[in-house]
């Protein structure tokens, strides 16, 4: 393809090809400092292409393709090309990742131990992970936690943190010195702005950690903490994993081991201040 960008995020190498220069230039700027795929061979290929040649210039619409695709994925306007690239990379992980059990969770690390936070979109897991990274935690990832079925360790996947709607202002205020991507208005998920993980997160991204605590955050409720029993955790994590079924027995091994080895709590919170205090208290009590 005409424009190409390659990057390694944690243990996963990507190659992004594009009919347009703009998304590639944005990726290169935001992922500056990230390494290249190991041995020069990426795990996944992503393509951003025009459905018809003239759609490169006339009302340009970015189609998403790659090794793994969903049929009839709607194109995005070229102004949202960066989002298209990020979505396509996520899609490769969600549909094609077979080495690690993929949990739809954010992950932060302290002292070699990992806090996993999982929940629906809007639960605040991305925002909390970003804020914790300002308070002595290492950001491992805001979207996918990678559990190694052999070691049980969590691997970092520190892609750009995807902040949505109200979370954008919260992060901008809390992290005035951080680097952000362009503000993307009117996307299918509302306003989106990408936050570049800090240098420490990138420098340490090859260092896995031992899972120590699992939280199910829920934003917009009175503060509350309750234990979640292993059976329920298991069920919720099978639903929070995009590749549990495809991983077969290795997925079963990884998940049962994780569920039996770490405590799990559901935390409800009205604002991020409460949530951060809840997280620190639970972590101290481990």
């Amino acid at each position: 393809m005409k424009h190409v960008f390659s990057v390694r995020i944690g243990p996963v190498g990507f190659r992004v090809g594009s009919d347009w220069r703009a998304p590639i230039r944005q990726l290169a700027a935001l992922y500056a400092g990230y390494p290249q795929p190991e041995d020069g061979v990426p795990d996944f290929t992503v393509r951003l292409f025009a459905q018809r040649p003239w759609r490169r210039v006339i009302r340009p619409a970015v189609m998403i393709g790659g090794d793994f695709m969903i049929p009839d994925a709607a194109p995005l306007p070229l102004a949202q090309g960066l989002l298209a690239a990020e979505m396509a990379m996520n899609l490769q992980m969600a549909l094609g990742q077979r080495r690690y059990l993929l949990l739809h969770a954010s992950a932060v690390e302290r002292d070699g131990r990992v806090l996993l936070m999982t929940g629906e979109s809007g639960s605040g897991k991305s925002t909390l992970a970003a804020l914790l990274s300002q308070r002595g935690w290492r950001l491992m990832g805001d979207e996918f936690a990678l559990i190694d079925p052999v070691t049980g360790l969590a691997h970092a996947f520190p892609r750009l943190v995807s902040l949505k709607n109200a979370a954008i202002a919260v992060a901008e205020a809390a992290m005035p010195q951080a680097r952000f991507g362009p503000l993307l208005e009117g996307t299918p998920k509302g306003a989106i702005r990408h936050l570049v993980p800090d240098a420490a997160a990138v420098a340490a991204m090859d260092m896995p950690g031992k899972p120590a605590l699992l939280l199910f955050p829920r934003f917009g409720f009175a503060p509350d903490i309750r234990d979640v029993a292993p059976g329920e955790v298991f069920m919720r994590l099978t639903q929070a994993s995009t590749n549990y079924v495809a991983m077969g027995e290795r997925g079963f091994d990884a998940l049962t081991r994780l569920v039996l080895s770490i405590p799990a709590q559901a935390i409800d919170y009205p604002d991020t201040k409460h949530a951060l205090a809840q997280v620190e208290a639970l972590w101290e009590a481990l």
Binding site: A229, P230, G231, F252, D253, L260
Partner: peptide
């Protein structure tokens, strides 16, 4: 089979 008791539930 792989049988792993979790709590009241078994995987």
């Amino acid at each position: 089979l792989r049988i792993v008791p979790l709590d009241a539930f078994t995987a």
